[in-house]
Nucleic acid binder design. Structure first.
Lengths: 360, 360
DNA sequence: CTGAAAGCGCTTACAG
DNA sequence: CTGAAAGCGCTTACAG
């Protein structure tokens, strides 16, 4: 009786074993045998690279359907040494900029028959490296890399493999990698000149990082714009916390408090914020003090996230055209993959767009 | 002289040819030869699956570095028949829900050494099918599919390949695919009961689609909640346009105008909106009429997009916990990939979360 | 119009 | 502790 149980269990195990992982996958050899032709012919029937007799063709088609044969792209790629596949590695899929850029990239690459697979590194250097090596060992035909890190040295290794890379927003300087950059410096300059032309002389900055490359540039442009207008730089009105809404809130509260204690008449009449989330936090803080936007304090942000148009008052900001950037990257990559372009590294910078709304 | 030019050009071509695509890739055989051992040993040195003499180990390591050898995951996968890779196919990477879900999925899968590659179908059935077959022909170990289409029939084919699939928000009913669903019906019910408890009797609905599956459910729940409270359904105050901000604006304007002409006293005191973007548009429209939110008209949305907390007044809404959903999916997939679970299809529904803010 | 066979770059039973 | 060889599932010169 016990044996019956054991036998039953064995049966179940065997069944799930057979119908499960180890079910024999049907190969081109199987359909060849079944159709009574050679693998060669099946392969050509599939690819159309060589004429195949109509009846043979039909027979093969039938067998393929009967057996539910699905060719292995893996095996094919190993043989032909390319995959029609490109990897997009991004630091934060949750930041709306990257999805939009991804669409731009994909929309141009898909026309040429490339699949783009998106790899999200969560801003983690280790994950980035893992993805990079994983993906290149899987023989993607191209990589686009958007990274917060300086990947020059890591990338140097990949260059040996001659897989085309284009990099976004980086300081990479390697012979075979194209890089497309955003024009943050000019974008900030534009915003600052706008403020200055409106008569503002006391312009604070919220979120002025020295460390994060992007924000360092924005900050530099901020100071330069002040300088160019003959306005002295005053570090009592530039303060930085996290690049988030509450970071913006806290930084602005700190600024306003500080200035109130020292010399209330010196309150800034405008705030340039390192990004939109920070700007939204700054607006929260300003309201806290019963001040009005833009009359008491004007606010400008950076990035033009979706919420920028939705909040009240709507936020004056500067936009990096993510979709356009994606398209440009795709174009560059395509030229390198096709060998259409084989020259030295190209550096392209995409123009920003100033978006005037109600907050300044 | 001409010949010299030609020769030069030939040289350049040859150089870029050699150093370019067709540069010989270094294989395990190359390092074996160079190190004076067999491929077998190199392979084991790499994998650690068999003891290797320390000196041999060291020699191999050196050669690997010298030759800059990078093993081909492609070849490896072909041999071992799995890839440690899973594909997440989503309809719209630009909709913040999916990136968040992707993170949840990735965070749990990465611990088990799986890479997740994200495929964005742009809501296009053809692209979805292409990705699905491409990815399965590349032997991913698992697929998670979030689709707006009914993929039952297409999926039936994949089942033969026994690759584990878990599907999100679908009506798929196939023996081996798990599906996790959102609880929109209960979520809407909760929101409606909240409104009713607050004393609202005239509750309109903006964005009440019969066609889109998601919105049909939300609408059904809306009517049922009315019914349950003994409030008659009045189709003069349910109107639908696009599921966008301007759609919400237009629909609400239409409703308000219409009601004003016919019987002004019958203006709704609350609006349930099919999603947050529609709700934001509705709020625009309400302001247009000089009405206040929530005092004249309360507004509730659905989804809890980022902007919901940022706008003024902040939006009362219902959240689908995208991150949690991603994690749950990852868990189910993992169990199936490991064979830990081999039973019939599991159907899990993730609880919503009601988020009370200022608009209602 | 069709086939036999080599090879893409690995892993792994088998043998020592 | 180490090797020779088969095989994963394709494609493609070569030959007819």
């Amino acid at each position: 009786l016990l044996y019956i149980y054991i036998y039953a269990i064995f049966n179940i195990l065997q069944r799930s074993f057979l119908s499960g992982w180890y079910k024999k996958v049907v190969t081109i050899a199987d359909v060849a045998k079944q159709a009574g032709v050679s693998q060669t012919t099946v392969s050509h029937a599939l690819s159309g690279k060589r004429p195949v007799a109509p009846q043979t063709q039909a027979r093969i088609a039938q067998v393929i359907k009967d057996l539910n044969f699905r060719p292995s792209a893996l095996a094919r790629s190993l043989r032909i040494q390319h995959t029609q596949t490109i990897a997009l590695v991004i630091p934060d899929i949750t930041n709306p900029f990257y999805p939009t850029m991804a669409r731009g990239l994909q929309d141009i690459l898909i026309q040429s028959g490339y699949y783009v697979f998106i790899c999200n590194t969560e801003n983690d250097l280790k994950q980035e490296i893992t993805f990079l090596t994983e993906v290149s060992s899987r023989h993607v035909d191209g990589i686009v890399l958007a990274s917060h890190y300086d990947r020059t040295s890591a990338l140097r290794e990949f260059l040996n493999d001659k897989i085309p890379i284009v990099s976004f927003e980086s300081s990479i300087n390697l012979p075979n990698v194209d890089v497309v950059n955003t024009d943050d410096y000019q974008g900030v300059k534009h915003a600052m000149e706008y403020l200055i032309k409106k008569g503002h002389r006391r312009i604070g900055m919220i979120g002025s990082s020295q460390h994060h490359p992007t924000y360092a540039i924005r900050r530099a442009s901020y100071s330069d714009a002040l300088l160019a207008a003959g306005i002295p730089y005053d570090d009592t009105i530039v303060v930085q916390k996290d690049f988030t809404r509450v970071g913006g809130l806290e930084a602005t509260q700190y600024l306003l408090n500080h200035v109130k204690d020292i010399m209330p008449e010196n309150r800034p009449t405008a705030l340039f914020c390192a990004n939109d989330m920070v700007a939204i936090g700054a607006m929260d803080a300003i309201r806290t003090y019963g001040l009005s936007i833009p009359d008491d304090i004007a606010v400008v942000g950076y990035d033009d996230i979706e919420a920028a148009a939705l909040i009240y008052p709507s936020l004056t900001t500067v936009l990096n055209p993510a979709y356009k950037i994606g398209q440009t990257i795709g174009q560059l990559l395509l030229e390198r993959m096709r060998g259409t372009y084989q020259g030295p590294s190209r550096h392209i910078t995409i123009p920003y767009q100033f978006i005037q709304r109600d907050s300044a």
